[in-house]
Design a protein around this nucleic acid. Structure first.
Lengths: 333, 333
DNA sequence: TTGCGAAATGACAACGTTGTCATTTCGTTA
DNA sequence: TAACGAAATGACAACGTTGTCATTTCGCAA
């Protein structure tokens, strides 16, 4: 019964006005007399008119969409997408999304090529691992590109949590409370987050002239933290442990407990991401929390800003927050 | 230096062929002589040509994009999006995404209206809570719509985890091992997942002529599970607890332990989502796991299928899987 | 009533593709 | 070499909007 596609022309005929008037009712309603506007609105209603995105974009030369490329879909990614989507909505943009498939090898250039065939005015890459062409990549000049990554990029704007700063902050929190050293349990080797957290930990210790001990290799999950904890329990000089996430921190704590040690009386622990309280009742774990939502918002705003004022390259760091609980002992007391 | 937008016409002139030939090189390369093809390819390369999405879609009358509306961004959502995105990629579609903002009230009709102005051939609604116009909503006839929700919809295809079946399965697992009753700890009241899990639990008990005890109200987090556990520890007839997620299940277990009860010797526990092992070393919790990724894949495939063969309404249930660990005691032994 | 400037409306081209159909070129065969 | 059918290429319209500029209508003062 309905026509396949109702065009402005159909509406115009039904309303007894010109095509252009229909266009005006949509884009500059104030320039149309009220009686005319009503006629047109009724006709649109009656015919079920929807503006055609393709035609509109073709004419305008822009889409009102921001591309998002997910190279990696981690836990924090939900909140980041949430932030991106909310900020986009607020500024009147929709998101166009593509994702690297598991196993597939996708370079930045691949992603850019694919994106530039899609309805997109600018794009955000979420990049949590290293990629081959990172340093050589050049974004298409007509497509503002922002990369979410802790690495600095020669030509593109980047946005990142300040993972390194967060780790430094946690370390200093230990040191300021009289701890003489801090052990570190890392996440998966290829993860940039893990690498940055490790870097911050190292930097903080070295800044105080402390030789960082060998870090323990984990894989983000509790079991690997537990294994690390068993090792650490035997080190008499170990009073402070920084684990690269909360799950491993919990593993460490369980291992210490199983070895007869108490947190924080014997050993202090700090984790990352502040999510243990969801799983552990009365959790005492102090943790560095990153504001992934904020990260997404910043990334999107940076793209949209770059759309209006082209070409500036910027580097944004979103600081972490230390959520204090009871897992760190003040040795000076 | 580069022209703002390089069109096929520019390429055609540069290559000394007609516009249409350039089009053919892109869409039906076999119908173009190799020497011509090479000329065109070189010209495209040299000018940096990218096909214009808007023009192409306008002509073709389709976009190659599937809309995704996130009414709610839960934990499992990442995996679901992952599935949707992978399946989309595989079938040559990109995703266009919008999200309900926190606090905003968005009905299905709102979402559909917004989406139908975007580059979208079909759409997926991810709906985990009730919405006002659920029963009255009618999808635009030209936009295949699939709703991810446990509720049945009068006109749209739906896809869901079989939450109810999963809960039933867990209950029967208890009952088949000699338990005479099963207590239930729910998630947030407004969550459809929680409601369905509760419904399955009730059904399983009633099917065996057992009067379901009053369910305990939780909020998904461990602390609420702990509170529930304290209550349950005092009930002598409580040998089996089904918690609506793993975090609360862990809370229950911790409370039982703190009350001097052992899992599974005194009380058996089953959770949902199978994620405790990430946080707890050597986790023993048996859990019902839903395949969110599969869910996303099914939803996308349903949309794409509906694009080719219009109008069929279907209801897909993706079954859960019981991951057996050691938290359930066999009372018959 | 007439005339005027401002407001409202309309005609037409253009955005960059693809489909239709006509034309040219090619490789074969007589 | 001529003639033929098939393959390759081209000319032109059309998709549904919006921008430009011309035209009509309106409200108001003379």
């Amino acid at each position: 019964m309905d026509k396949k596609n109702v065009s402005m022309n159909d509406v115009a005929i039904a309303a007894g006005v010109s095509l252009k008037t229909v266009s005006r009712v949509i884009n500059e309603p104030d320039s149309v007399r009220e009686s005319t506007r009503d006629k047109v609105h009724s006709a649109m209603e009656a015919l079920g008119f929807r503006t055609n995105f393709a035609a509109r974009s073709l004419k305008l030369g822009r889409y009102g969409c921001i591309g998002v490329v997910l190279f990696h879909l981690s836990g924090g990614a939900v909140d980041m997408i949430d932030g991106i989507a909310d900020a986009a909505e607020e500024r009147g943009f929709a998101l166009t999304m593509i994702k690297k498939r598991a196993g597939e090898k996708m370079t930045l250039a691949d992603a850019a090529r694919r994106m530039s065939q899609l309805p997109v005015d600018g794009m955000i890459f979420n990049l949590r691992q290293m990629v081959d062409d990172f340093d050589t990549f050049e974004a298409p000049k007509d497509l503002k590109t922002v990369i979410i990554t802790p690495m600095e990029h020669p030509t593109c704007s980047t946005v990142s949590d300040d993972q390194e700063g967060g780790a430094r902050m946690a370390c200093e929190y230990f040191l300021n409370r009289g701890h003489k050293n801090v052990y570190f349990v890392s996440g998966k080797k290829e993860s940039l987050s893990s690498q940055c957290r490790m870097k911050g930990w190292r930097a903080a210790l070295e800044a105080r002239g402390i030789e960082p001990p060998e870090p323990l290799q984990g894989d983000w999950n509790a079991d690997s933290g537990y294994a690390a904890g068993l090792v650490l329990a035997d080190k008499p000089d170990c009073t402070a442990v920084l684990a690269a996430n909360d799950c491993m921190a919990n593993g460490v704590m369980m291992a210490l407990r199983d070895k007869g040690l108490s947190v924080p009386d014997d050993v202090s622990v700090i984790g990352f991401d502040d999510e243990l309280y969801k799983t552990i009742p009365n959790s005492i774990l102090t943790s560095v929390k990153f504001r992934h939502r904020e990260l997404g918002i910043r990334a999107l705003n940076e793209v949209v800003t770059g759309l209006e004022v082209p070409s500036s390259r910027s580097r944004t760091l979103v600081s972490g927050v230390l959520i204090e609980r009871a897992s760190v002992r003040d040795l000076r007391a």
